[in-house]
């Protein structure tokens, strides 16, 4: 696959949310607004790129039977690193995303990419794969966030263009599932053309 293909495949062909359907918990929980979705996506991308790079470096020397625990330790290390950095420099964002930052450890996208791609490919390609999938994830979360924010609060990225309240259900739990479901329908419809 070309270098360009590695970066763009996350958008459509291997979109982590709509095609691979992975990492659903943060996708549903943190997309109450466009900004939150974007921040969560970027946080995941940070871990994804770094863990992909390190895992592609160490994969050849890690014994087969313990490769999963080793990968998990590597991923958990980067997640903790991210937690510390966020607490120090963007404490408000850290507070908003809350539990879902440490839960990046068990995001199946991260371990999935480590296992399926980084352990078999070169460092450069793995980094590009991390960027590509990361962009795909970030964009999906932002789109879901935008839809939920428009319907639920009548605003985009905090800019309010409809006075009064939106349909509250879209900010609450049911809206997350419904919006993801209908966006997936739309995605299927468009992608299959």
């Amino acid at each position: 696959m070309s270098k360009f293909g590695l970066i763009t495949k996350g958008l459509l062909k291997e979109n982590p949310t709509f095609v691979l359907v992975l990492g659903l918990c943060p996708t549903l929980a943190t997309t109450t607004s466009a900004m939150n979705g974007l921040e969560m996506g970027l946080a995941t991308m940070f871990v994804l790129i770094l863990s992909n790079i390190v895992i592609s470096l160490i994969a050849p020397v890690v014994p087969d039977k313990v490769h999963i625990p080793v990968y998990i330790v590597v991923i958990a290390t980067f997640v903790t690193l991210l937690q510390l950095l966020m607490q120090a420099y963007v404490p408000d964002v850290y507070e908003t995303l809350g539990l879902f930052i440490p839960l990046i450890v068990v995001n199946c996208i991260v371990l999935g990419r480590a296992e399926a791609f980084a352990s078999k490919n070169s460092v450069g390609d793995s980094a590009l794969d991390g960027i590509g999938i990361g962009i795909g994830f970030t964009l999906s979360l932002t789109v879901i966030g935008i839809v939920r924010e428009i319907l639920g609060s009548g605003s985009i990225f905090g800019w309010k263009f409809i006075a009064g309240d939106g349909v509250l259900a879209f900010v609450m739990a049911p809206g997350a599932f419904l919006v993801l479901g209908y966006l997936m329908v739309l995605f299927n419809k468009l992608a299959k053309r």
């Binding site: 994969a59 020397v61 890690v62 014994p63 087969d64 352990s119 078999k120």
Partner: peptide, 13 residues
């Protein structure tokens, strides 16, 4: 691809 597993290198890694 990955190295062969034995007790020593598993514990070590």
């Amino acid at each position: 691809m990955a190295a062969k597993s034995n007790l020593t290198n598993m514990a070590l890694s």
